[in-house]
Write a protein that binds this DNA or RNA. Structure first.
Length: 617
DNA sequence: TTTGGCTGCCC
DNA sequence: ATTCTGC
DNA sequence: GCAGAATGGGCAGCCAAA
């Protein structure tokens, strides 16, 4: 099993020491038990010829069309790379979804055991977000590995990167110069995925060296377009116009074509669209491919919501809010609909899971596990149900002392499990004041010990997604709010409900917004109560609107100023409050006001040497 | 033991 | 987090 | 309006070099 191809120059055009690609190979009957004939490079040529077939409409596609490996054989990484390459030449989402759908069907038809790894690579992830497994590899490490693998200096690689603008292309252009006695075995999807996970798990002394060597070993074995996509996967920047949402849709559609037993429910108009929707929804509630993919293979799409439902301890995608420009717009959008306005606290989103066995997990907005970052919050939450308030007050517990453990979040005794949607906000318990976000992010982040905490936080709860074994996602916000208020007692400075107002009066809301801002909040979040008011995980729904103070006028932090001088350059433009258009307009209007010297009455530091002076306007 | 580059994650 | 873009 | 890509500020944690 050797490979005749020892030297090869590179990219693009097929490498041809093997003049006659054996196209008949594909027509061999599938029952052929013979040891496979032909070298790896012959198979690669065949694969490159056939990959285009992935673009066929899924209805006309046969999952055995493209596969040039035996059933049960590991899926070649080249297959996935070629599919990526095919996608990179497309712009339409429908075509891309078809390609991915057919790609997945091919894997299902040949080596379903590889489907999970294929899906993870396609999603460009090594594990579910809440497991906290990260590659720990960035451009700098990749450049090092690349330089070593190709026998170049880092600066050579860097300048080529600057030139081409893409490290993947750099890898593509520079074949490994490592002299090999024998070409390594072809890469497989499983091999690449497993190596990625090993890279992620490496830590401690010499870990960087080990990671680098693993990257090099992959690069050495990579052919054709494999280097490019290996590198882009390591960068977590596939940039081919394909990402998770499209993958989920394709997964759903692939499952429809793969259905052997169950049929879509009779009321379904468009099974493909419906399947895509189901998989997306299910993933937003249980973002774990290791669960979804096997369930899809054994039970099909239509039963997926049954087999993969909300699971305590696994974070649900947080519902997001759409930006709006002012109170008027809100009144307009929600006329005749009941809605609630809440303070938008300037802290960190937290989804707090309290399990029946008493354990607690805290997840960030991006589903990262933050349990180890907020042991103080865990301590508060994990207190067993405390006695009713009036009793607690007289049991000698010291509610004002330093010991946070005596400051429980009061749960009603009937509360056995829940998931809360909250904002954790830096809080000064002495001054009884909310502290800015900048203070919050100075908190230590890993393995935090309660006694060493320097920045306290107050939990501001605004929603409840699960209570006593019951998911509440499908309940209207009005119901969820009732559950929330009924299940907990506030404890100022430790656990509070987000300040809220239910009103449809413009003046009243404007006043409320002002009070939010003067209470150190960013603005308001507006949510419908009864209508379309279910919790929609991961969605930036129209039913949650944010109204940030940035958009407001006259909140007291504006100044009237006259520009007298300026510097050229391309400074940061985001966060200035000006749009590109506004900046351009301002720049244009000032250009005509340029004067050669500062007016005599201008006062300016000696250190300050502006590029241009303006006359005042 | 200290420093600084690098990475990931909050917004 | 925001902004831009193609569909 | 959605999905994807690209962008910014600023911090802690990790690791390797100084």
């Amino acid at each position: 099993k050797h490979d005749p191809e020892v030297s090869s120059d590179g990219i693009g055009k097929p490498i041809n020491d093997s003049p006659k690609p054996n196209l008949d190979e594909a027509k061999k009957p599938p029952d052929s038990k013979k040891v496979k004939v032909g070298s790896a490079s012959e198979r690669n040529v065949e694969m490159k010829g056939k990959i285009r077939l992935l673009k066929k409409k899924p209805a006309d596609f046969d999952p055995n069309m493209v596969a040039c490996w035996e059933k049960g054989e590991r899926v070649p990484f080249l297959f996935l790379s070629l599919a990526f390459d095919l996608i990179s030449n497309e712009t339409g989402r429908i075509v891309i979804t078809d390609i991915v759908c057919n790609m997945l069907r091919t894997v299902i038809a040949t080596t379903p055991d590889d489907l999970v790894a294929t899906v993870y690579l396609a999603a460009n992830k090594v594990a579910p977000a809440h497991e906290g497994l990260e590659l720990g590899i960035g451009d700098a490490s990749i450049i090092k590995a690349l330089a070593e693998a190709c026998g170049r200096t880092e600066s050579q690689v860097k300048s080529q990167y600057k030139d081409k603008g893409d490290l993947g292309l750099v890898a593509q252009a520079s074949r490994s110069s490592q002299s090999m006695m024998r070409k390594p075995d072809p890469l497989t999807v499983i091999k690449v995925f497993d190596t990625f996970r090993l890279i992620a798990k490496e830590s401690g002394k010499d870990s960087q060296e080990k990671k680098k060597n693993r990257i090099k070993s992959l690069l050495v074995a990579a052919t054709d377009c494999e280097p490019q996509y290996l590198i882009r996967l390591l960068q977590t920047k596939l940039r081919i116009g394909f990402s998770e949402q499209t993958l989920l849709a394709a997964l759903g559609q692939a499952a429809v074509y793969n259905e052997q037993h169950s049929k879509p429910p009779p009321n379904v108009q468009s099974p493909l669209e419906e399947a895509a929707k189901i998989v997306k929804q299910v993933f937003s509630i249980l973002p774990v491919y290791d669960k979804i993919v096997p369930a899809l293979l054994t039970g099909g799409v239509w039963d997926l919501p049954k087999s993969c439902g909300f699971t305590p301890g696994v974070p649900v995608g947080p519902m997001l809010a759409k930006p709006t420009k002012g109170v008027a717009e809100i009144i307009n959008k929600f006329q005749d609909i009941d809605f609630i306005c809440e303070y938008k606290y300037d802290g960190e989103r937290a989804q707090i899971h309290y399990m029946e066995n008493g354990s607690v997990e805290i997840y960030s907005r991006n589903a990262e596990c933050n349990t180890g970052k907020f042991p103080d919050v865990v301590a508060a939450i994990s207190r067993l149900p405390s006695p009713p308030l009036h009793q607690a007050k007289h049991t000698g517990q010291n509610f004002s002392s330093e010991s946070f453990l005596t400051m429980p979040v009061r749960k009603k005794s009937s509360v056995k499990s829940f998931v809360l949607d909250c904002e954790l906000v830096a809080y000064d318990r002495v001054q009884k004041k909310i502290l800015p976000f900048q203070i919050l992010i100075t908190r230590a982040r890993k393995n935090v010990v309660v006694s060493e905490i320097k920045v306290d936080v107050c939990i501001f709860a605004f929603d409840i997604l699960y209570l006593n074994g019951q998911p509440l996602l499908h309940e209207q916000l009005k119901v969820r709010k009732e559950r929330l208020y009924d299940s907990f007692e506030e404890e100022p400075g430790f656990f509070q409900f987000a300040t809220a107002l239910t009103s449809n009066d413009l003046e009243e809301i404007q006043t409320f917004l002002n009070s939010a801002v003067s209470s150190s909040c960013e603005g308001l979040i507006i949510k419908t109560l009864d209508r379309d008011a279910t919790y929609e995980p991961s969605k930036r729904s129209l039913n949650w609107l944010k109204l940030k103070k940035d958009y407001m006028e006259s909140i007291g932090d504006t100044l009237d100023l006259v520009p007298i001088a300026a510097f050229h350059g391309r400074g940061k433009r985001t966060g200035t409050g000006f749009s590109e258009a506004e900046l351009e307009e301002r720049s244009a209007s000032l250009r005509s006001k340029v004067i050669p010297e500062p007016k005599s009455y201008y006062r300016c530091s000696e250190m300050m040497k502006p590029d241009v002076w303006f006359e005042t306007t």
